[in-house]
Design a protein around this nucleic acid. Structure first.
Lengths: 125, 125, 125, 125
DNA sequence: GTGGTCTAGACCACC
DNA sequence: GTGGTCTAGACCACA
């Protein structure tokens, strides 16, 4: 895994896990990789993975069975989706729209770009 | 000036300058505040301002006349706009669209939100 | 390490590193001294070393693994050589030749001097 | 006049004057531009020109007649030539040769480059 | 342990 | 007056 240098690694790992949970690639009550295993895969210090897991546990996304490992919480997928959606609409979108105005990007251009990126992936729908 | 604690001060100063240059509030060849002066205004250490100035000089946004001060470069406004636009389209938008898909937000919803935020500013005036 | 007073210390440190990289005394992906360690060795403030490292990182000569340290970039040796060679041929040589003309030094004299300095090192060994 | 940003302006002005003296474009006992005049031409602070003149006066390259102006000293041309030649041979050349070795530039390449730059300018001689 | 940022204060060369 | 560099020492986030 490659890391963006402008964000801490543990947050990027947490995001990576969230994505897998949200898309239900890792469904509820599934055991996720052990700290050491994931650390080895990602070529990262186990402490760093641990920190990501702790944070997700605090947020209720995953839970821990002592001596066994970490598991995806019931309803975690929906929970993440709701949180992210709220953040997206209330915090991110306003910034995006503001930036578009500053850069003189019209909404119609956005539509064009959206259609371009969608093509080839979402045929027929 | 108030600073966001999640980004370094010198970068926020650089952004602040970029905004003034981009909007041409500070036109080409205009002298900008001296290091010490800006530092005093912002209640910040001169070294911190210096760091912002140095970076902007490296990027060609401002230039220095020795013993006199820093000045806005020719064409800096356009340069910043181009850089930001490129970054927006190539880096930010793909992330946004990806997120929208994950969150099942349709483009039509985006349009709605856009129109909402635009109202009150662009109507009748 | 002793520093020349006509050039800033951080630049001399950067040059020192470049030399070690160029001659491949420090090969690719080798970890270089930590900021504090080098600062202690050179009896210099860590900030000063940091500044040298930052600049070299901007130039792509070294890279950073967070929390671990700085490493020599892939191909840095060749990169430095190319940069220096280009500078030598395009910027330094023209000045040298111009000076020679002004001082009425013929190319044959240069050759003589070159052979003199080479002697003692390349003869018989 | 355009100034190199890596050397102080007053030194570049001094060099400029030396060149004119050395090539005898400005012969002995010729009056040179007044401080103000040169400063205006070069778009530079008069203090900066003054500093260059002072240094050249200290070195005996020019002399001052109070109330009248600065003049080129007797034998200044030869004097400069001798100083520069000595410096060139004893200080600059060794550095140049050292650099050539580091960059694997052979003397024959130097010869080639020399012949290239000389052509077109020194025809027939 | 690592780097990264910031402060306070100093000194210098230069304009 | 301007910028540029350096020091000493602090604090923080991160691995």
């Amino acid at each position: 895994m490659e890391f963006n240098k402008h964000q801490s690694i543990y947050l990027q790992i947490a995001d990576f896990i969230c994505e897998n949970v949200m898309t239900e690639k890792w469904p509820s009550d599934e055991k996720i990789s052990s700290v050491r295993e994931l650390a080895a895969n990602m070529e990262v210090n186990p402490n760093t993975v641990m920190r990501a897991y702790s944070q997700l546990q605090d947020e209720g996304i995953i839970y821990n069975k002592r001596g066994i490992g970490y598991f995806v919480s019931e309803g975690a997928s929906k929970k993440i989706k709701d949180m992210e959606k709220e953040d997206f609409i209330n915090n991110e979108l306003p910034k995006i729209f503001k930036k578009m105005k500053m850069l003189n990007i019209k909404f119609s251009e956005l539509e064009e770009l959206y259609n371009k990126t969608s093509n080839g992936k979402t045929n027929i729908s």
